[in-house]
Structure formats: C-alpha cells, structure tokens
Nucleic acid binder design. Structure first.
Lengths: 169, 169
DNA sequence: TTGTGTGCAAAAGCTTTGCATGTTG
DNA sequence: CAACATGCAAAGCTTTTGCACACAA
C-alpha cells in the first residue's frame, strides 16, 4: 500500500504531539489547544521562521492566539527538543522543527540571506573532545558558515528578515 | 631588552590603528578622534563586551561619545575584520577584538553564561569542504557549543547579559 | 474549584534613524 | 566650504511582563 508524503507528515505530527503531551504531563503543565495548534503549525511549515511570521500565519488562518502564547510555547518546545532556536547573526530569533530530521548545520548567504543546510560528522567529534577538555557537559551547538552564494538572483543586499530560500526568489 | 606585556599591547594598538587608518583612507571615510578612541578602548579590554558596556565605560572615563557613534564604529570595525561580532543565543550582540589573536570558537555555559574559547583545526576543513560542495565563498563562521560548566560557583541561572568570566565570580 | 495559561496592551531592551551641529579633507 | 560624522533624542523592532479573564485538571 502506498504511503504518500502527506500521510507521512500527518504521522509525524501525531508522533510529535504524543511526545509533547508526555512532556507536558511529566512537568505538570496543561494541555491547552493553543499549545498543540502551534506545534502543528510549526510541523506543517518548511524551512526556518521567526515568531512573528508564525503568529501572523496563525492569525491569517483565523486562529485566535496571542504573541505571548506563541513565544511561550516556542520556549516550551525548544526545552523539550521539538524545536531548535537559531540566531543567524541578526537580532531576530529563527526557529525550526527538530524531531525526525537529521541534525544539521547552516550556511548563510551574507548578501541575500538564503540558508542551506549541511551535515558533517566532524562537528560531533569536536563537541565530544572539547567537552572533555574544557570540562563541560555539551548539550547542543550552533555552527553557521557565512559567505556569498553564487545564485544568479542573489540580490547582494542583506534582507531584513534572514529568510528562507523558497520565499525569496 | 625586556618587553613588557603593556608595551606589547601598546604596539598592538598602534598596529591596529594603522590598519584602521588605511581602511578609512581606502574607503574615503574620515579619521575622526571618536573612531580611534573606540578602537583603542576595545583593544584595551579583555574578553567579550556588548555595545552598551563599551559606551558606558567610555562615558565613565569622561570621554564624550554617543551610542550612535559606538554602533557606527563597531560596524566599521567588523567590516574590516578588526572586531568580531557574536550572538551567543541572546538578542544582544557581543563583540571581541580580532587582530593578533588566534581564531577560535566558543563554549558557553547555559546556566551561568561564562564563555570559554577553544581552537580546533577541523572547523577549517569543514569550511573549505562545505564551501566547495554548496558553492559558497565562505567568509567567516561561528561555532558555539552550549552546555553546563562544572564551576562550583556556577549559579545555574541564566544571567541577563551573557558575560565575561571575569565579571561574574 | 483552583490556579495555571491566555489575550491584550503596555513596557522593556537593543539598535537604528532624523536632524541640527560640528569637523574633516 | 562642502560633505560627512557626531550627538541627542525619538522611533523601530523583537521580546517580555502585568493583569483580568478563561479554562484544564
């Protein structure tokens, strides 16, 4: 029987909802519809996004939610590793879904702001070794490479919201 | 003849001033006393600092300077690689002098905010390889490892200004 | 029913901008 | 002396906070 991409995504969403549910129970936090709606919204997105974009998008779908709750829930989701928070060199936090995707790092174009992902096993080795040497328990990391992409429509201007490749062409 | 640490620092400061001077000339920018005073102030500091701390410190020394000029000059210095700008996961840019110091990366304690530095040659290999694979001209990078330090006076609370080891004990 | 979570709006914090003034080239 | 840089204060943006109300447990 064929399993479509949509079905896979729905399965993934059910899975992360269970995980989140369990996390809320464990920490005696409430299972509010807003929290699950935000989680679902995030996992239906592709690429990176900021808190305001998430808020606006939910508003546009006529989902009644406040910025405070969006920020609140994002923090919760980061704390249980369902979402990763990034700072790509701007004073604007970018977020990304984390569960079921290979851990990766980012290449950011300093002209057009486009972001590509890559994996390299050496970063894991560095984390382990430096943790031992410096006597730290390393929890996570951020490796961003900044440079100039060679897209022909790279606009050689820093966009205001460091964005997402698909929103910029 | 003995060369003291202070003398070395003064030499270094003269050197970066020349570099900055040349950069200003090349770009037809003006050599104002404020710009050189800020550069000197930065190279007299140790560790990491934010724009406000730099501003306050100059004010305390009765140097008349404005926030606008501080931000302005910091950007200039970053653009000619005399200063590096960091974002250690907070919405607050941290800066660091860059000339004459080995390039390094950072280990940040998620509890007390202390920052340690380390070097690892593998990061250079990753930059080169990923630049080729993704067709980017890599200009710089940021690798931050986040974890828990094992200092006995690590206060297990996130400080407001991710700071500098020496200001926190 | 109890108290945590939410929405709204105001406040806070960092950074940028506009405009009059000062100063470099 | 003309253009650029500075100082000051106001504005801009993202994020946090306070408070009254709603609703999950």
């Amino acid at each position: 029987m064929k399993v479509t991409t949509t079905e896979k995504l729905e399965q993934l969403i059910e899975e992360v909802k269970s995980i989140f549910s369990l996390h809320l129970e464990k920490n005696a936090l409430r299972k509010t519809p807003e929290r699950f709606a935000i989680l679902e919204e995030i996992y239906n997105r592709t690429d990176h996004f900021d808190a305001e974009a998430l808020y606006i998008h939910m508003k546009n779908q006529n989902y009644r939610v406040s910025r405070a709750t969006v920020y609140n829930t994002l923090e919760l989701l980061v704390s249980c590793d369902l979402v990763i928070k990034h700072q790509f060199g701007k004073n604007l936090a970018q977020y990304e879904k984390a569960y079921g995707f290979k851990q990766h790092d980012h290449m950011v174009c300093i002209d057009c702001g486009s972001v590509l992902e890559f994996c390299d096993p050496r970063i894991q080795q560095i984390k382990t070794m430096m943790g031992e040497i410096l006597n730290f328990e390393v929890k996570h990391h951020a490796l961003n490479l900044y440079g100039k992409c060679k897209r022909e429509n790279c606009d050689n201007k820093q966009l205001k919201n460091i964005g997402v490749a698909t929103t910029m062409a």
